[in-house]
Design a protein around this nucleic acid. Structure first.
Lengths: 107, 107
DNA sequence: TGATTATATAATTGTATGATTATATAATGG
DNA sequence: CCATTATATAATCATACAATTATATAATCA
């Protein structure tokens, strides 16, 4: 791989993480896998917004999806990217946000 | 710091690094400090383009500047951000690019 | 002091992209 | 099968932002 390609590839990965909504999703998935409706509830945004961000994260290999109908669960997939571990450990705990949402759980 | 602020702050740092030109500058500065004209030559772009990217990197605390007239040297400043180290180690060596530029050195 | 070199700033432009709104698909349950 | 729920996709819009062009500042040197 050329120097340019190598930098371009890292740029793309970082671009995925350098959006507030997506980085919050990643922070949430660090706690546990979640379905779309969980994330929509916790982030208080629209479902298409979350779906599209998840699509990008999936295309970039950051998350995995597993269908357990009628829900689709997303989980973090960074085991193969150890250079991101320290970075993602900087993310704050989302336990409080997740707990606050639990009562009116959607799935 | 709130969860939101903490994520926003990390987002801003990642945004700085998730641009091809800026990440290439960072890769170059990993090898050694450089003046603006060095970077312009190696990246084959315009001087204002590089100046503006350097300004952002400096505002984000990623680089330091030191004036040694008539040149201004920029150097990497990530000692205080260890969570970026592994990430930046992913950057390819720029030695060849730097060597290719050396002959017609500008400063 | 005037010319040149190094760099910064300002203004403009084009493109990328995040959010929203609307609609489609997919699965489940009556 | 029809209604409902969960999610995806498409289209639109507004904003952010990278690159360029033009100009300004700062320092050196003749």
């Amino acid at each position: 791989m050329t120097v340019e390609d190598s930098i371009a590839s890292l740029t793309e990965t970082l671009k995925l993480l350098s959006d507030k909504t997506r980085l919050t999703i990643v922070a949430l998935l660090r706690e546990r896998e979640m379905c779309v409706c969980d994330i929509v509830d916790i982030l208080e945004t629209t479902q298409p917004n979350i779906s599209q961000h998840l699509k990008k994260l999936k295309a970039g290999g950051i998350v995995n999806e597993s269908r357990r109908s009628p829900w689709i669960y997303y989980s973090l997939n960074v085991e193969d990217k150890p250079y991101l571990w320290d970075l993602l450990n900087q993310l704050p705990s989302m336990k409080d946000k997740i707990d606050a949402h639990k009562p009116n759980s959607c799935c």
